[in-house]
Design a protein around this nucleic acid. Sequence first.
DNA 1: ACTTGCCAATTGCATATGCAATTAGATAGC
DNA 2: GCTATCTAATTGCATATGCAATTGGCAAGT
Lengths: 249, 249
Amino acid sequence: MSQTQLDAVKLDGAGPVYDQIRRAIRDLVLGGTWPPGTSVPPEHALMEQLGASRMTVHRALVQLAREGLITRRRRSGTVVATPPASHAMLDILSIPEEVAQLGQLYAHEVLSRRDGRPSAELALRFGLKRGEKVVHLVTLHRGDDTPHVLEERVIHLATVPAAADGDFSETPAGDWLLKNSLWSQAEHAISAVSAEPEDAALLGIGSGDPCLLIERRTWNQGAPVTAVRLLYPGTRHRFVGRFGPYGPI
Amino acid sequence: MSQTQLDAVKLDGAGPVYDQIRRAIRDLVLGGTWPPGTSVPPEHALMEQLGASRMTVHRALVQLAREGLITRRRRSGTVVATPPASHAMLDILSIPEEVAQLGQLYAHEVLSRRDGRPSAELALRFGLKRGEKVVHLVTLHRGDDTPHVLEERVIHLATVPAAADGDFSETPAGDWLLKNSLWSQAEHAISAVSAEPEDAALLGIGSGDPCLLIERRTWNQGAPVTAVRLLYPGTRHRFVGRFGPYGPI
DNA sequence: ACTTGCCAATTGCATATGCAATTAGATAGC
DNA sequence: GCTATCTAATTGCATATGCAATTGGCAAGT
Protein backbone atom coordinates (compact mmCIF):
# COMPACT_ATOMS: atom_id res chain seq x y z
CA MET A 1 0.00 0.00 0.00
CA SER A 2 1.86 2.97 -1.28
CA GLN A 3 1.33 6.50 -0.15
CA THR A 4 -0.38 7.21 -3.44
CA GLN A 5 -3.10 4.78 -2.65
CA LEU A 6 -3.72 6.16 0.77
CA ASP A 7 -3.98 9.69 -0.52
CA ALA A 8 -6.47 8.61 -3.13
CA VAL A 9 -9.14 8.02 -0.51
CA LYS A 10 -11.07 11.24 -0.04
CA LEU A 11 -14.26 11.75 1.88
CA ASP A 12 -16.98 14.05 0.64
CA GLY A 13 -18.64 14.83 3.93
CA ALA A 14 -22.06 13.68 2.76
CA GLY A 15 -23.89 11.24 4.97
CA PRO A 16 -22.52 8.75 7.47
CA VAL A 17 -18.76 8.42 7.68
CA TYR A 18 -18.74 4.70 7.01
CA ASP A 19 -20.70 5.31 3.84
CA GLN A 20 -18.37 8.09 2.72
CA ILE A 21 -15.48 5.68 3.09
CA ARG A 22 -17.40 2.97 1.29
CA ARG A 23 -18.25 5.22 -1.64
CA ALA A 24 -14.77 6.68 -1.85
CA ILE A 25 -13.19 3.28 -2.19
CA ARG A 26 -15.93 1.99 -4.45
CA ASP A 27 -15.32 4.88 -6.82
CA LEU A 28 -11.61 4.22 -6.91
CA VAL A 29 -12.31 0.61 -7.80
CA LEU A 30 -15.03 1.20 -10.36
CA GLY A 31 -13.16 4.12 -11.86
CA GLY A 32 -10.12 1.99 -12.50
CA THR A 33 -7.79 3.95 -10.24
CA TRP A 34 -7.41 0.81 -8.22
CA PRO A 35 -7.49 -2.02 -10.74
CA PRO A 36 -8.09 -5.62 -9.66
CA GLY A 37 -5.24 -6.91 -7.56
CA THR A 38 -4.39 -3.54 -6.00
CA SER A 39 -3.81 -3.64 -2.26
CA VAL A 40 -6.23 -1.61 -0.24
CA PRO A 41 -4.56 0.08 2.74
CA PRO A 42 -5.05 -1.82 6.00
CA GLU A 43 -7.68 -0.67 8.43
CA HIS A 44 -5.17 1.02 10.72
CA ALA A 45 -3.75 3.12 7.91
CA LEU A 46 -7.17 4.22 6.69
CA MET A 47 -8.17 4.91 10.25
CA GLU A 48 -5.30 7.36 10.75
CA GLN A 49 -5.54 8.84 7.29
CA LEU A 50 -9.25 9.51 7.64
CA GLY A 51 -9.47 10.19 11.33
CA ALA A 52 -12.17 7.59 11.84
CA SER A 53 -12.21 4.73 14.29
CA ARG A 54 -11.18 1.31 13.20
CA MET A 55 -14.71 -0.06 13.57
CA THR A 56 -16.04 2.59 11.23
CA VAL A 57 -13.43 1.81 8.60
CA HIS A 58 -14.10 -1.86 9.19
CA ARG A 59 -17.78 -1.42 8.54
CA ALA A 60 -17.13 0.19 5.18
CA LEU A 61 -14.69 -2.51 4.13
CA VAL A 62 -16.92 -5.36 5.27
CA GLN A 63 -19.71 -3.96 3.19
CA LEU A 64 -17.54 -3.58 0.12
CA ALA A 65 -16.41 -7.15 0.59
CA ARG A 66 -20.01 -8.31 0.71
CA GLU A 67 -20.68 -6.40 -2.47
CA GLY A 68 -17.84 -8.30 -4.07
CA LEU A 69 -15.60 -5.33 -4.86
CA ILE A 70 -12.79 -6.38 -2.57
CA THR A 71 -11.60 -9.56 -0.95
CA ARG A 72 -10.14 -9.63 2.52
CA ARG A 73 -7.96 -12.14 4.32
CA ARG A 74 -6.45 -11.98 7.74
CA ARG A 75 -2.86 -11.03 7.76
CA SER A 76 -2.71 -10.82 3.95
CA GLY A 77 -4.87 -7.75 3.87
CA THR A 78 -7.44 -6.41 1.49
CA VAL A 79 -7.17 -6.40 -2.30
CA VAL A 80 -9.43 -5.25 -5.10
CA ALA A 81 -11.33 -8.25 -6.42
CA THR A 82 -11.26 -9.51 -9.95
CA PRO A 83 -14.76 -9.07 -11.36
CA PRO A 84 -16.55 -12.37 -11.67
CA ALA A 85 -16.68 -13.62 -15.23
CA SER A 86 -20.39 -14.20 -15.21
CA HIS A 87 -23.45 -13.15 -13.33
CA ALA A 88 -26.67 -14.86 -12.59
CA MET A 89 -28.87 -14.37 -15.54
CA LEU A 90 -27.16 -12.87 -18.48
CA ASP A 91 -23.83 -11.40 -18.63
CA ILE A 92 -20.57 -10.33 -20.00
CA LEU A 93 -19.93 -13.96 -20.59
CA SER A 94 -16.93 -14.76 -22.58
CA ILE A 95 -18.27 -16.73 -25.50
CA PRO A 96 -15.30 -19.12 -25.53
CA GLU A 97 -16.11 -19.86 -21.89
CA GLU A 98 -19.76 -20.26 -22.65
CA VAL A 99 -18.95 -22.82 -25.32
CA ALA A 100 -16.40 -24.58 -23.15
CA GLN A 101 -18.99 -24.94 -20.40
CA LEU A 102 -21.10 -26.89 -22.84
CA GLY A 103 -18.16 -29.22 -23.28
CA GLN A 104 -17.64 -28.18 -26.87
CA LEU A 105 -14.54 -27.20 -28.77
CA TYR A 106 -14.48 -23.50 -29.45
CA ALA A 107 -13.58 -21.76 -32.68
CA HIS A 108 -14.40 -18.42 -34.20
CA GLU A 109 -14.10 -16.64 -37.48
CA VAL A 110 -14.12 -12.93 -38.20
CA LEU A 111 -16.44 -12.58 -41.17
CA SER A 112 -15.89 -8.89 -41.71
CA ARG A 113 -14.15 -5.91 -40.24
CA ARG A 114 -14.44 -2.28 -41.13
CA ASP A 115 -12.92 0.65 -39.27
CA GLY A 116 -14.08 4.20 -39.57
CA ARG A 117 -17.29 6.19 -39.55
CA PRO A 118 -20.44 4.10 -39.57
CA SER A 119 -22.85 3.89 -42.46
CA ALA A 120 -26.29 5.34 -41.92
CA GLU A 121 -27.78 1.92 -41.48
CA LEU A 122 -25.17 0.84 -38.96
CA ALA A 123 -25.51 4.06 -37.00
CA LEU A 124 -29.22 3.45 -36.76
CA ARG A 125 -28.91 -0.14 -35.66
CA PHE A 126 -26.50 0.64 -32.83
CA GLY A 127 -27.65 4.13 -31.97
CA LEU A 128 -24.39 5.76 -33.03
CA LYS A 129 -23.68 9.30 -34.11
CA ARG A 130 -22.52 9.56 -37.70
CA GLY A 131 -19.25 11.18 -36.77
CA GLU A 132 -18.00 8.62 -34.26
CA LYS A 133 -15.21 6.40 -35.42
CA VAL A 134 -15.77 2.76 -34.65
CA VAL A 135 -14.52 -0.69 -35.42
CA HIS A 136 -17.31 -2.78 -36.89
CA LEU A 137 -16.95 -6.53 -36.64
CA VAL A 138 -19.04 -9.51 -37.58
CA THR A 139 -17.92 -12.75 -35.99
CA LEU A 140 -19.28 -16.26 -36.06
CA HIS A 141 -18.60 -18.39 -33.00
CA ARG A 142 -18.70 -22.15 -33.28
CA GLY A 143 -18.86 -25.02 -30.80
CA ASP A 144 -17.74 -28.39 -32.15
CA ASP A 145 -17.96 -26.89 -35.62
CA THR A 146 -21.64 -26.08 -35.40
CA PRO A 147 -22.55 -22.39 -35.33
CA HIS A 148 -23.14 -21.19 -31.78
CA VAL A 149 -23.86 -17.51 -32.03
CA LEU A 150 -23.50 -14.75 -34.59
CA GLU A 151 -21.97 -11.59 -33.18
CA GLU A 152 -22.10 -8.13 -34.65
CA ARG A 153 -20.18 -5.52 -32.70
CA VAL A 154 -19.02 -1.95 -32.77
CA ILE A 155 -16.18 -0.69 -30.62
CA HIS A 156 -15.89 3.03 -29.97
CA LEU A 157 -12.41 4.14 -30.94
CA ALA A 158 -12.69 7.35 -28.98
CA THR A 159 -12.98 5.32 -25.78
CA VAL A 160 -10.81 2.35 -26.77
CA PRO A 161 -8.24 3.69 -29.25
CA ALA A 162 -6.15 0.53 -28.93
CA ALA A 163 -8.90 -1.39 -30.71
CA ALA A 164 -7.69 0.05 -34.01
CA ASP A 165 -4.61 -2.13 -33.73
CA GLY A 166 -6.35 -5.12 -32.17
CA ASP A 167 -6.19 -8.45 -33.93
CA PHE A 168 -9.48 -10.20 -33.31
CA SER A 169 -8.79 -13.33 -35.29
CA GLU A 170 -6.87 -14.84 -32.42
CA THR A 171 -8.83 -13.52 -29.44
CA PRO A 172 -12.46 -12.64 -30.09
CA ALA A 173 -13.30 -8.98 -29.58
CA GLY A 174 -15.36 -9.58 -26.45
CA ASP A 175 -12.49 -11.24 -24.64
CA TRP A 176 -10.02 -8.73 -25.98
CA LEU A 177 -12.10 -5.91 -24.57
CA LEU A 178 -12.35 -7.57 -21.18
CA LYS A 179 -8.57 -7.41 -20.98
CA ASN A 180 -7.94 -4.13 -22.70
CA SER A 181 -10.71 -1.85 -21.52
CA LEU A 182 -12.74 -0.95 -18.49
CA TRP A 183 -16.46 -0.75 -18.18
CA SER A 184 -18.62 0.59 -15.40
CA GLN A 185 -22.10 0.03 -16.71
CA ALA A 186 -23.87 -2.25 -19.14
CA GLU A 187 -27.36 -2.66 -20.43
CA HIS A 188 -28.89 -5.78 -21.81
CA ALA A 189 -31.99 -6.28 -23.81
CA ILE A 190 -33.35 -9.63 -24.81
CA SER A 191 -35.95 -10.26 -27.44
CA ALA A 192 -37.04 -12.81 -30.02
CA VAL A 193 -36.68 -12.26 -33.75
CA SER A 194 -36.85 -14.20 -36.96
CA ALA A 195 -33.59 -15.03 -38.64
CA GLU A 196 -32.91 -13.03 -41.77
CA PRO A 197 -31.93 -15.24 -44.70
CA GLU A 198 -28.24 -14.37 -44.64
CA ASP A 199 -28.01 -14.77 -40.85
CA ALA A 200 -29.91 -18.04 -41.05
CA ALA A 201 -27.45 -19.34 -43.62
CA LEU A 202 -24.52 -18.50 -41.38
CA LEU A 203 -26.14 -20.11 -38.37
CA GLY A 204 -27.21 -23.15 -40.31
CA ILE A 205 -30.88 -22.75 -39.53
CA GLY A 206 -33.93 -22.10 -41.64
CA SER A 207 -34.74 -18.64 -42.86
CA GLY A 208 -37.28 -17.14 -40.49
CA ASP A 209 -36.50 -19.53 -37.66
CA PRO A 210 -36.83 -17.97 -34.20
CA CYS A 211 -33.70 -16.55 -32.59
CA LEU A 212 -32.88 -14.98 -29.27
CA LEU A 213 -31.39 -11.58 -29.79
CA ILE A 214 -29.29 -10.18 -27.01
CA GLU A 215 -28.24 -6.59 -27.37
CA ARG A 216 -25.71 -5.25 -24.97
CA ARG A 217 -24.21 -1.83 -24.67
CA THR A 218 -21.35 -1.02 -22.38
CA TRP A 219 -20.07 2.26 -20.99
CA ASN A 220 -17.17 3.41 -18.91
CA GLN A 221 -17.86 6.48 -16.82
CA GLY A 222 -20.50 7.54 -19.28
CA ALA A 223 -18.38 7.04 -22.40
CA PRO A 224 -19.59 4.29 -24.74
CA VAL A 225 -17.19 1.37 -25.02
CA THR A 226 -18.88 -1.18 -27.20
CA ALA A 227 -22.24 -2.40 -28.39
CA VAL A 228 -22.98 -5.90 -29.51
CA ARG A 229 -25.85 -7.88 -30.96
CA LEU A 230 -25.72 -11.59 -30.31
CA LEU A 231 -28.02 -13.76 -32.36
CA TYR A 232 -28.58 -17.22 -30.89
CA PRO A 233 -30.55 -19.92 -32.65
CA GLY A 234 -33.63 -20.00 -30.45
CA THR A 235 -34.12 -23.68 -30.46
CA ARG A 236 -30.66 -24.43 -29.24
CA HIS A 237 -30.37 -21.96 -26.39
CA ARG A 238 -32.01 -20.94 -23.21
CA PHE A 239 -30.96 -18.68 -20.39
CA VAL A 240 -31.73 -19.74 -16.91
CA GLY A 241 -31.78 -17.90 -13.61
CA ARG A 242 -32.79 -18.75 -10.07
CA PHE A 243 -34.51 -16.38 -7.70
CA GLY A 244 -35.91 -16.13 -4.23
CA PRO A 245 -38.71 -13.76 -3.26
CA TYR A 246 -36.26 -11.06 -2.30
CA GLY A 247 -33.79 -11.41 -5.13
CA PRO A 248 -31.40 -13.75 -6.88
CA ILE A 249 -30.16 -16.67 -4.81
CA MET B 1 -44.13 -7.76 19.20
CA SER B 2 -45.80 -10.59 20.98
CA GLN B 3 -44.03 -13.13 23.10
CA THR B 4 -44.58 -15.65 20.36
CA GLN B 5 -42.43 -13.69 17.99
CA LEU B 6 -39.60 -13.26 20.42
CA ASP B 7 -39.54 -16.95 21.25
CA ALA B 8 -39.42 -17.80 17.57
CA VAL B 9 -35.88 -16.49 17.28
CA LYS B 10 -33.50 -19.34 18.01
CA LEU B 11 -29.78 -19.42 17.49
CA ASP B 12 -28.00 -22.50 16.26
CA GLY B 13 -24.57 -21.82 17.65
CA ALA B 14 -22.86 -22.09 14.26
CA GLY B 15 -20.57 -19.27 13.25
CA PRO B 16 -20.59 -15.65 14.36
CA VAL B 17 -23.40 -14.54 16.63
CA TYR B 18 -24.53 -11.74 14.35
CA ASP B 19 -24.85 -14.23 11.53
CA GLN B 20 -26.78 -16.69 13.67
CA ILE B 21 -29.24 -13.92 14.44
CA ARG B 22 -29.40 -12.93 10.80
CA ARG B 23 -30.09 -16.44 9.63
CA ALA B 24 -32.61 -17.13 12.36
CA ILE B 25 -34.69 -14.12 11.39
CA ARG B 26 -34.20 -14.70 7.69
CA ASP B 27 -35.55 -18.21 8.07
CA LEU B 28 -38.59 -16.98 9.95
CA VAL B 29 -39.29 -14.52 7.14
CA LEU B 30 -38.63 -16.84 4.22
CA GLY B 31 -40.43 -19.71 5.91
CA GLY B 32 -43.56 -17.65 6.29
CA THR B 33 -43.61 -17.75 10.09
CA TRP B 34 -43.29 -13.98 9.98
CA PRO B 35 -45.29 -12.88 6.97
CA PRO B 36 -44.85 -9.42 5.44
CA GLY B 37 -46.01 -6.73 7.83
CA THR B 38 -45.08 -8.63 10.98
CA SER B 39 -43.26 -6.54 13.58
CA VAL B 40 -39.77 -7.70 14.36
CA PRO B 41 -38.94 -7.28 18.05
CA PRO B 42 -36.92 -4.15 18.81
CA GLU B 43 -33.19 -4.38 19.28
CA HIS B 44 -33.44 -4.18 23.05
CA ALA B 45 -35.83 -7.10 23.24
CA LEU B 46 -33.73 -9.30 20.97
CA MET B 47 -30.65 -8.29 22.88
CA GLU B 48 -32.09 -9.53 26.16
CA GLN B 49 -33.73 -12.57 24.65
CA LEU B 50 -30.55 -13.67 22.95
CA GLY B 51 -27.98 -12.42 25.42
CA ALA B 52 -26.11 -10.50 22.77
CA SER B 53 -25.10 -6.87 22.80
CA ARG B 54 -27.22 -4.31 21.02
CA MET B 55 -24.54 -3.64 18.41
CA THR B 56 -24.45 -7.31 17.53
CA VAL B 57 -28.20 -7.49 17.13
CA HIS B 58 -28.02 -4.22 15.21
CA ARG B 59 -25.50 -5.62 12.80
CA ALA B 60 -27.74 -8.57 11.96
CA LEU B 61 -30.77 -6.35 11.44
CA VAL B 62 -28.92 -3.80 9.33
CA GLN B 63 -27.76 -6.56 7.07
CA LEU B 64 -31.23 -8.02 6.71
CA ALA B 65 -32.49 -4.56 5.87
CA ARG B 66 -29.87 -4.21 3.18
CA GLU B 67 -30.93 -7.55 1.78
CA GLY B 68 -34.45 -6.22 1.57
CA LEU B 69 -36.08 -8.67 3.96
CA ILE B 70 -37.06 -6.10 6.54
CA THR B 71 -37.61 -2.38 6.67
CA ARG B 72 -36.61 -0.28 9.65
CA ARG B 73 -37.69 3.13 10.82
CA ARG B 74 -36.69 5.02 13.90
CA ARG B 75 -39.24 4.91 16.60
CA SER B 76 -41.66 2.83 14.48
CA GLY B 77 -39.49 -0.21 14.64
CA THR B 78 -38.73 -3.03 12.26
CA VAL B 79 -41.23 -4.89 10.12
CA VAL B 80 -40.98 -7.70 7.62
CA ALA B 81 -40.90 -6.21 4.14
CA THR B 82 -43.35 -6.91 1.39
CA PRO B 83 -41.42 -8.65 -1.36
CA PRO B 84 -40.80 -6.29 -4.24
CA ALA B 85 -43.11 -6.87 -7.16
CA SER B 86 -40.34 -7.00 -9.67
CA HIS B 87 -36.68 -7.69 -9.81
CA ALA B 88 -34.00 -6.56 -12.15
CA MET B 89 -34.28 -8.65 -15.18
CA LEU B 90 -37.14 -10.97 -15.16
CA ASP B 91 -39.47 -11.69 -12.41
CA ILE B 92 -42.60 -12.67 -10.75
CA LEU B 93 -44.16 -9.66 -12.32
CA SER B 94 -47.84 -9.38 -11.96
CA ILE B 95 -49.07 -9.28 -15.50
CA PRO B 96 -51.76 -6.69 -14.74
CA GLU B 97 -49.00 -4.49 -13.35
CA GLU B 98 -46.81 -5.15 -16.32
CA VAL B 99 -49.59 -4.03 -18.63
CA ALA B 100 -50.44 -1.04 -16.48
CA GLN B 101 -46.83 0.10 -16.59
CA LEU B 102 -47.14 0.28 -20.34
CA GLY B 103 -50.08 2.62 -19.81
CA GLN B 104 -52.56 0.14 -21.20
CA LEU B 105 -55.89 -1.06 -19.96
CA TYR B 106 -55.68 -4.57 -18.63
CA ALA B 107 -58.11 -7.40 -19.26
CA HIS B 108 -57.81 -11.15 -19.19
CA GLU B 109 -59.78 -14.16 -20.20
CA VAL B 110 -59.53 -17.74 -18.96
CA LEU B 111 -59.61 -19.83 -22.10
CA SER B 112 -59.69 -23.18 -20.39
CA ARG B 113 -59.48 -24.79 -17.00
CA ARG B 114 -59.15 -28.42 -16.05
CA ASP B 115 -58.58 -29.82 -12.60
CA GLY B 116 -57.22 -33.26 -11.89
CA ARG B 117 -54.45 -35.51 -13.00
CA PRO B 118 -52.48 -34.31 -16.01
CA SER B 119 -52.57 -35.89 -19.41
CA ALA B 120 -49.39 -37.51 -20.61
CA GLU B 121 -48.64 -34.61 -22.87
CA LEU B 122 -49.18 -32.01 -20.15
CA ALA B 123 -47.07 -33.95 -17.67
CA LEU B 124 -44.26 -33.98 -20.18
CA ARG B 125 -44.48 -30.29 -20.95
CA PHE B 126 -44.32 -29.24 -17.31
CA GLY B 127 -42.26 -32.08 -15.91
CA LEU B 128 -45.08 -33.41 -13.71
CA LYS B 129 -45.61 -36.86 -12.30
CA ARG B 130 -48.71 -38.53 -13.66
CA GLY B 131 -50.27 -38.94 -10.24
CA GLU B 132 -50.06 -35.32 -9.09
CA LYS B 133 -53.33 -33.43 -9.04
CA VAL B 134 -53.08 -30.01 -10.59
CA VAL B 135 -55.17 -27.17 -11.86
CA HIS B 136 -54.42 -26.53 -15.52
CA LEU B 137 -55.23 -23.07 -16.86
CA VAL B 138 -54.83 -21.29 -20.14
CA THR B 139 -55.24 -17.54 -19.93
CA LEU B 140 -54.94 -14.77 -22.46
CA HIS B 141 -53.89 -11.37 -21.12
CA ARG B 142 -54.71 -8.24 -23.08
CA GLY B 143 -53.57 -4.64 -22.97
CA ASP B 144 -55.87 -2.14 -24.63
CA ASP B 145 -57.65 -5.10 -26.22
CA THR B 146 -54.58 -6.34 -28.07
CA PRO B 147 -53.16 -9.66 -26.90
CA HIS B 148 -50.24 -9.17 -24.54
CA VAL B 149 -49.18 -12.62 -23.47
CA LEU B 150 -50.56 -16.14 -23.56
CA GLU B 151 -50.22 -17.97 -20.27
CA GLU B 152 -50.41 -21.67 -19.65
CA ARG B 153 -50.12 -22.70 -16.04
CA VAL B 154 -50.37 -25.62 -13.70
CA ILE B 155 -50.87 -25.22 -9.97
CA HIS B 156 -49.98 -28.08 -7.67
CA LEU B 157 -52.99 -28.88 -5.53
CA ALA B 158 -50.93 -30.82 -3.01
CA THR B 159 -49.06 -27.62 -2.17
CA VAL B 160 -51.87 -25.12 -2.76
CA PRO B 161 -55.12 -26.98 -2.04
CA ALA B 162 -57.09 -23.72 -1.95
CA ALA B 163 -56.52 -23.36 -5.69
CA ALA B 164 -59.25 -25.94 -6.28
CA ASP B 165 -61.78 -23.35 -5.12
CA GLY B 166 -60.05 -20.36 -6.66
CA ASP B 167 -61.91 -18.26 -9.18
CA PHE B 168 -59.40 -17.01 -11.70
CA SER B 169 -61.78 -15.11 -13.92
CA GLU B 170 -61.66 -12.11 -11.61
CA THR B 171 -58.04 -12.24 -10.43
CA PRO B 172 -55.56 -13.94 -12.74
CA ALA B 173 -53.95 -17.02 -11.29
CA GLY B 174 -50.52 -15.41 -10.95
CA ASP B 175 -51.83 -12.62 -8.77
CA TRP B 176 -54.08 -14.99 -6.87
CA LEU B 177 -51.07 -17.14 -6.02
CA LEU B 178 -49.05 -14.18 -4.85
CA LYS B 179 -51.72 -13.54 -2.26
CA ASN B 180 -52.67 -17.09 -1.41
CA SER B 181 -49.44 -18.99 -1.40
CA LEU B 182 -45.81 -18.71 -0.44
CA TRP B 183 -42.78 -19.41 -2.52
CA SER B 184 -39.15 -19.64 -1.57
CA GLN B 185 -37.49 -20.39 -4.86
CA ALA B 186 -38.13 -19.86 -8.52
CA GLU B 187 -36.40 -20.76 -11.72
CA HIS B 188 -36.73 -18.97 -15.00
CA ALA B 189 -35.76 -20.02 -18.45
CA ILE B 190 -36.01 -17.82 -21.45
CA SER B 191 -35.87 -18.95 -25.03
CA ALA B 192 -37.14 -18.10 -28.48
CA VAL B 193 -39.69 -20.25 -30.30
CA SER B 194 -41.97 -20.10 -33.29
CA ALA B 195 -45.63 -19.56 -32.62
CA GLU B 196 -47.76 -22.63 -33.20
CA PRO B 197 -50.73 -21.90 -35.42
CA GLU B 198 -53.32 -21.96 -32.62
CA ASP B 199 -51.16 -19.81 -30.32
CA ALA B 200 -50.47 -17.40 -33.14
CA ALA B 201 -54.18 -17.02 -33.77
CA LEU B 202 -54.80 -16.21 -30.12
CA LEU B 203 -51.98 -13.68 -30.03
CA GLY B 204 -52.97 -12.13 -33.32
CA ILE B 205 -49.65 -12.77 -35.00
CA GLY B 206 -48.56 -14.87 -37.94
CA SER B 207 -48.11 -18.58 -37.60
CA GLY B 208 -44.42 -19.25 -37.09
CA ASP B 209 -43.63 -15.71 -35.94
CA PRO B 210 -40.90 -15.53 -33.29
CA CYS B 211 -41.97 -15.43 -29.68
CA LEU B 212 -40.18 -15.12 -26.37
CA LEU B 213 -41.01 -18.07 -24.18
CA ILE B 214 -40.55 -17.62 -20.48
CA GLU B 215 -40.88 -20.72 -18.39
CA ARG B 216 -41.02 -20.32 -14.68
CA ARG B 217 -41.30 -22.89 -11.95
CA THR B 218 -41.84 -22.02 -8.34
CA TRP B 219 -41.31 -23.97 -5.16
CA ASN B 220 -41.94 -23.46 -1.49
CA GLN B 221 -39.49 -25.23 0.78
CA GLY B 222 -38.88 -27.79 -1.94
CA ALA B 223 -42.55 -28.47 -2.72
CA PRO B 224 -43.65 -27.42 -6.21
CA VAL B 225 -46.17 -24.58 -6.21
CA THR B 226 -46.78 -23.68 -9.82
CA ALA B 227 -45.25 -23.79 -13.25
CA VAL B 228 -46.06 -21.39 -16.02
CA ARG B 229 -45.20 -20.84 -19.67
CA LEU B 230 -45.59 -17.29 -20.89
CA LEU B 231 -45.57 -16.76 -24.61
CA TYR B 232 -44.85 -13.17 -25.66
CA PRO B 233 -44.99 -11.97 -29.25
CA GLY B 234 -41.29 -11.45 -29.90
CA THR B 235 -41.60 -8.32 -31.89
CA ARG B 236 -43.55 -6.50 -29.26
CA HIS B 237 -41.50 -7.27 -26.18
CA ARG B 238 -38.03 -7.01 -24.81
CA PHE B 239 -36.64 -7.46 -21.36
CA VAL B 240 -34.01 -5.09 -20.20
CA GLY B 241 -31.51 -5.18 -17.38
CA ARG B 242 -28.68 -2.98 -16.22
CA PHE B 243 -25.46 -4.23 -14.74
CA GLY B 244 -22.15 -3.08 -13.38
CA PRO B 245 -18.99 -5.17 -13.40
CA TYR B 246 -19.73 -6.54 -9.97
CA GLY B 247 -23.45 -7.15 -10.34
CA PRO B 248 -26.79 -5.52 -11.03
CA ILE B 249 -26.96 -1.82 -10.32
C1' DA C 1 18.92 -26.09 1.91
C1' DC C 2 15.20 -27.26 4.60
C1' DT C 3 12.27 -27.43 8.41
C1' DT C 4 10.34 -25.75 12.54
C1' DG C 5 8.67 -22.50 15.42
C1' DC C 6 7.67 -17.93 16.60
C1' DC C 7 6.28 -13.11 15.98
C1' DA C 8 3.69 -9.53 14.36
C1' DA C 9 0.43 -7.66 11.00
C1' DT C 10 -4.06 -7.86 9.72
C1' DT C 11 -8.73 -8.88 9.77
C1' DG C 12 -12.92 -10.84 12.46
C1' DC C 13 -15.89 -10.39 16.22
C1' DA C 14 -18.19 -8.89 20.33
C1' DT C 15 -19.04 -5.62 23.95
C1' DA C 16 -20.04 -1.25 26.39
C1' DT C 17 -21.09 3.38 25.96
C1' DG C 18 -22.95 7.69 24.46
C1' DC C 19 -25.26 10.69 21.68
C1' DA C 20 -28.23 11.99 17.50
C1' DA C 21 -32.39 11.68 14.81
C1' DT C 22 -36.95 10.40 14.16
C1' DT C 23 -41.56 10.07 15.40
C1' DA C 24 -45.85 7.60 17.68
C1' DG C 25 -48.42 8.59 21.13
C1' DA C 26 -49.53 11.07 25.31
C1' DT C 27 -50.49 15.42 27.34
C1' DA C 28 -51.53 20.04 27.92
C1' DG C 29 -53.59 24.15 26.37
C1' DC C 30 -56.90 26.60 23.76
C1' DG D 1 -62.49 18.99 19.22
C1' DC D 2 -58.20 20.61 17.70
C1' DT D 3 -53.49 21.90 17.93
C1' DA D 4 -49.13 22.50 19.85
C1' DT D 5 -45.86 20.46 22.72
C1' DC D 6 -43.52 17.12 25.16
C1' DT D 7 -41.84 12.43 26.14
C1' DA D 8 -39.99 8.36 25.41
C1' DA D 9 -39.20 4.37 22.31
C1' DT D 10 -36.52 3.02 18.69
C1' DT D 11 -33.14 3.01 15.30
C1' DG D 12 -28.62 5.22 13.41
C1' DC D 13 -23.99 6.14 14.09
C1' DA D 14 -19.41 6.56 15.99
C1' DT D 15 -15.93 5.47 19.34
C1' DA D 16 -12.83 2.82 22.37
C1' DT D 17 -11.41 -1.48 23.81
C1' DG D 18 -10.11 -6.20 23.93
C1' DC D 19 -9.50 -10.59 22.39
C1' DA D 20 -9.50 -14.37 18.64
C1' DA D 21 -7.97 -16.28 14.33
C1' DT D 22 -5.12 -16.44 10.44
C1' DT D 23 -0.87 -16.37 8.23
C1' DG D 24 3.35 -14.07 5.80
C1' DG D 25 7.75 -13.88 6.74
C1' DC D 26 11.69 -14.13 9.63
C1' DA D 27 14.92 -16.55 12.68
C1' DA D 28 16.85 -20.35 14.63
C1' DG D 29 18.28 -24.81 14.44
C1' DT D 30 19.53 -28.96 11.95
